[in-house]
Nucleic acid binder design. Structure first.
Length: 425
DNA sequence: TCTGGGGTCCTAGGACCC
DNA sequence: TCTGGGGTCCTAGGACCC
């Protein structure tokens, strides 16, 4: 087995849950199995779209991101459910807990997929045996299907896991690339979307094989550094490591919502901003970070979308501070047209003791900002920062902010977890 | 009856400093 | 008096992914 893999090479798995949200619902309610099921946001509203759907629904042409009304037209007896994120988070924790039984080198990339580096886990068996064992265990303990890709790097593992669904295990070796990868169109590649595929066509590149042999100067001019990277990937080259820490590093935390109807009234819009600010504040606290930069998103009736952001003097976390900054940005940049979506995002996230030091500098050596559109308690605090210093330094570790590694995870636990979560709200 | 909400990474221009 | 780049920060937007 070992000679299959070069001494310095790695063995990477990509584990990808199949139609995750729909599968979790089926695990909860087995009577849903074998039926066309879709999970959709905004079920009661006019703007619902399909988030995930079962394979039975896909047979009717129902697809992710399709508007709900269109999906119902294609499949009139479609079962539609609202997302239960608590359930999905619990299932996700169970899934990653299982993966960590095989190696600590597990990197979650989203709620339903992750990479593993099993190069040094061969005492557990061959890569295929390990993949089969993982797949069986996830099915047995959580009643959830997944596909697994086995390859010498992340890109190829991700590509491989996509090739057999549901419940597939696929090996993709370097030497398979010309036969398996190169005939495909470029937009089949992870990292190439509609726009990039169109651009590539303008220089005569239609397939991954053509991309693999493309002129680098031309690629760089067309796509920047990303062009070079895509050519490397097309040749099966990807040097990124599996990084178990990356899940802890948040770059931004935000919340946005499409309004039930387009709105023009400033007070109504402010109310929305206040509730978004509250959510963002809760999430910042849960992750135990403060935001140095605050941004808003405004989408107008015609779907034209702008983002505006401002770096703040003080890192913030409280909902009043977030709402204030968001309202200021909104008033400064809103053109008065009907608004379809509003969002608030915190960037440049820092931990409380870092924020404490920052605040120390800011409150004693610098003037507070000079453009208070709205005078509130919060903006006064911004000027006379002492209260904020106490607050920023006082946050405790949130016990909910822990990654689950439970090995005794099973469906019953999954149910009870979600039950508790619901009761809390 | 068009098209959600959570993110990441990259680019590019202007301000500002040296 | 007339002249130059380089580097970094901040902001806005685009592309992509799940």
């Amino acid at each position: 087995m070992k000679e299959m893999y070069p001494k310095n090479g790695r063995v990477i798995l990509h584990v990808d849950m199949n139609s995750f949200y729909a599968s979790v619902e089926m695990a909860y309610d087995p009577s849903l199995k074998g039926r066309p099921l879709a999970i959709a946001g905004n079920v009661e509203e006019r703007r619902g779209i399909i988030v995930t759907c079962s394979y039975e629904a896909r047979k009717y042409g129902v697809k992710t991101t399709m508007p709900l009304w269109e999906a119902k037209k294609l499949c009139p007896h479609l079962i539609v459910k609202k997302p239960n994120f608590d359930r999905y988070r619990a299932a996700s924790m169970g899934m990653f807990g299982i993966l960590r039984q095989y190696t600590p080198l597990v990197e979650p990339v989203s709620i339903d997929e992750g990479y593993m580096d099993i190069t040094d886990s061969f005492e557990l068996g061959s890569p295929i045996e390990i993949a089969e064992s993982i797949q069986k265990q996830i099915l047995k303990q959580l009643d959830l299907p997944c596909s697994i890709g086995i390859a010498p790097n992340k890109f190829l593992a991700k590509t491989a896991s996509d090739m057999k669904k549901p419940m597939g295990i696929t090996i993709l070796r370097k030497r398979d690339i010309p036969a398996v990868l190169w005939p495909l169109e470029t937009n089949e590649m992870h990292g190439v979307g509609k726009k990039t595929a169109e651009k590539l066509k303008t220089i005569g590149i239609h397939t991954i094989g053509q991309l693999a042999k493309a002129n680098e100067i031309q690629l760089k001019k067309l796509l920047g550094i990303n062009g070079i990277r895509l050519k490397e990937r097309a040749n099966g080259v990807d040097k990124r490591h599996v990084d178990p820490e990356s899940v802890e590093e948040f770059k931004s935390i935000g919340n946005s919502t499409t309004l039930p109807r387009d709105m023009t009234n400033q007070q109504d819009l402010f109310h929305i901003l206040e509730s978004l600010a509250e959510t963002v504040s809760i999430r910042l606290k849960r992750k135990n970070v403060l935001a140095v930069t605050l941004g808003i998103t405004i989408r107008y009736k015609d779907r034209k979308t702008i983002t505006r952001s401002k770096k703040l003097g003080n890192p913030i976390q409280q909902k009043e501070d977030i709402a204030l900054a968001a309202k200021q940005l909104f008033l400064k940049h809103w053109n008065g047209d009907p608004v379809r979506l509003l969002g608030i995002t915190g960037y440049d996230l820092v931990e409380p003791d870092f924020a404490y030091k920052q605040l120390d500098l800011f409150s004693y050596e610098k003037d507070a900002q000079k453009e208070p559109l709205i005078q509130t308690l919060s903006s006064l605090r911004e000027k006379y920062g002492k209260n904020i210093i106490e607050r920023a330094g006082s946050h405790q570790l949130d016990p909910n902010n822990q990654v689950g590694t439970s090995t005794s995870f099973n469906k019953d636990f999954l149910r009870s977890f979600s039950q508790q979560d619901r009761e809390k709200e």
